[in-house]
Each structure stands twice: as C-alpha cells, then as structure tokens.
C-alpha cells in the first residue's frame, strides 16, 4: 500500500495514465482510504479538465475550413 508521499509523487503520472497497472492499483488503493490525497487527486483532475476545455475554446476564423480544403487540391501534388 502506497503512503501519502508516494501517492502525491505519482499523482501526476497517474493523471497522465502513465503508471503501470500495479502502481495504478496501489495509488487507487491509497486514494480510497485517504481523504486528503483523494482531495488532491480530485483537485488536479478538475484542473486538468479546466485547462483542456478553456485552452481549446477557440473560434475558427471565417472561411478557414474552406481554405484548408484548398490545401488538398491536385495542383499541390508534386509542387515540392
């Protein structure tokens, strides 16, 4: 069973889904029994969602998709 410090140290890789299944099980095991670490996990998980959602919130320029489709024209082939 992982302790608080180990769990917090691995929280970032846990949130990145980069831990081995064994370590994932250990982190989850600790989170279930520790409300402090569970709070840290929930906070960072929500922060990730906020950053991802807000950073991606971008209106496309007018006519942009049409201009992009123009990139696929035949005249482009072999133009290099």
């Amino acid at each position: 069973m992982a302790d608080c410090q180990e769990t917090l140290n691995e929280l970032e890789r846990f949130l990145d889904s980069e831990l081995s299944p064994v370590r994932v099980a250990e982190v989850i095991g600790h989170l279930k029994g520790c409300s402090d670490c569970q709070g840290a996990y929930e906070f960072h998980s929500e922060l990730r969602t906020i950053i991802k959602t807000k950073a991606q919130n971008e209106d496309l320029p007018k006519g942009f998709l049409d201009r992009l489709l123009g990139c696929f024209g035949d005249e482009v082939l072999g133009a290099d």
Partner: peptide, 14 residues
C-alpha cells in the same frame, strides 16, 4: 496560427 495549420495540411498532403 492559421498559417501554421495551413502549412501543416499542405505538408501532410504532399
């Protein structure tokens, strides 16, 4: 940003 995406698509197509 618009130029960068267009260039990406051009390169991808080529």
């Amino acid at each position: 940003a618009e130029d960068l995406v267009q260039e990406t698509f051009l390169k991808g197509w080529r």
